[in-house]
Amino acid sequence: MDKKFIAILAGIVIIAIAISTYINFVQDDDVVTIGYLLADYDPALTVANKTDMFNAQGLKTKVVVYNNDYELINAIASGDIDAAYMDIRFVLQSAEKGVPIKIISASQNGGSGLFVSNMSRINSVSDLKGKNIAMPGEDSIQYVLLSNYLKKHGMSIDDLNASSCSCSEMDKSIKKGKLDGAISYQPYVAISQNNGSKLLINSDELMPDHPNCVLIASDEFISRHPDDVENLVKIHENATNYINNNSDSAIGLIPMDKVVNREIKKEYLNNVSLVYGLNDTFKEKIDEFMKIEVDLGILKEPISHDKLFWKGS
């Protein structure tokens, strides 16, 4: 390729990056952009939006939905969004790889479970050998929890006929006989139970009060907008307290396109601990989860607190 053309092309790319950086810097700089996943439940975010908590706290926000964790983490790494609700497994994986993010608040603990078909004759962990068991994927919290649970019982994922499956498809596949069981998170556990499946292993057996979803922010956003970070954490706290203290009202705010059955919504809220802040108990649970990942060869070593947690709380 002609060297002059390469030089011109490189110049265009540099100019384009500079323009994009400038636009991103000056455009809507006072708007906090928050990302979340289409498949996830983030009740605090939903409640904050629907009860106008962001405006009440003087925070202008834009909420953006993403299809998967990879899109979401790329968005926050590139500066397209400032903060996000994300599962702890992917947060740890991203932090280990050097993605400039910090956990600014806990959000959800627990809420996982392994359910099986009533026709499967699975009654104990040993009965899982050779069975068709699905999980959200190897990047999921549930993969870590199940791997650790099996290890404690002298087994491994290799003892199962394991596969990855969308949580929304697990119950359908069990009904069709394609799966003997699956490990997932709420409300999909409650949905499958409501449709006749049996809960074999609950969250407390897998890991009591295990970390699930957290609220993260980019290092750049934390550095440039410390007051907005404080406000965002406060809003998350207010929304969480609202849900925990007004569950009947909160149930009505959960999007109806995801769960229509009010009883399943109640089951969801009853089986997930909605939390906030960065207290020592939460950090200890994160440490415990990281130790499990190190033991399983998922993490090379535990991530230090100064690289993982926001220092403002």
Rank of each mutant, 00 (worst) to 15 (best):
D87H: 10
A95T: 14
K176W: 01
K300D: 15
A77W: 00
D42N: 14
N24T: 08
H225T: 07
G79C: 10
E267I: 05
K198V: 13
S140M: 02
D2Q: 09
T46Y: 09
N109T: 02
S164T: 15
K50H: 12
S78M: 06
A48F: 13
H305A: 06
N261D: 15
L179P: 13
K258T: 13
R224E: 15
I286M: 08
K307W: 05
H305F: 09
D248A: 13
L37K: 03
L114T: 11
L269F: 12
Y66C: 05
L274A: 01
E288P: 00
P43H: 11
I15S: 11
P255R: 07
L114W: 10
G110L: 08
A250F: 02
I183W: 05
N246F: 05
S313Q: 10
K178L: 03
S249I: 07
G110N: 13
E301Y: 10
G297S: 01
A77V: 01
S78W: 12
A56L: 13
T240N: 08
D180L: 11
Y85C: 04
A77L: 01
A39Q: 11
K151D: 01
A39P: 01
V233P: 06
F221R: 08
L199Q: 04
K131Y: 08
S192G: 06
S168E: 09
D28Y: 12
K311V: 03
I133H: 08
I6G: 02
L274E: 02
L199V: 01
S168C: 02
Q93S: 14
G130S: 08
V259G: 03
G177A: 10
S304I: 08
L9P: 02
A44C: 05
N118G: 15
G113K: 09
V229H: 08
Q27A: 12
L9W: 03
D204W: 00
D248M: 13
I19H: 02
I76F: 02
L299P: 03
K265G: 03
S184D: 02
Y188P: 07
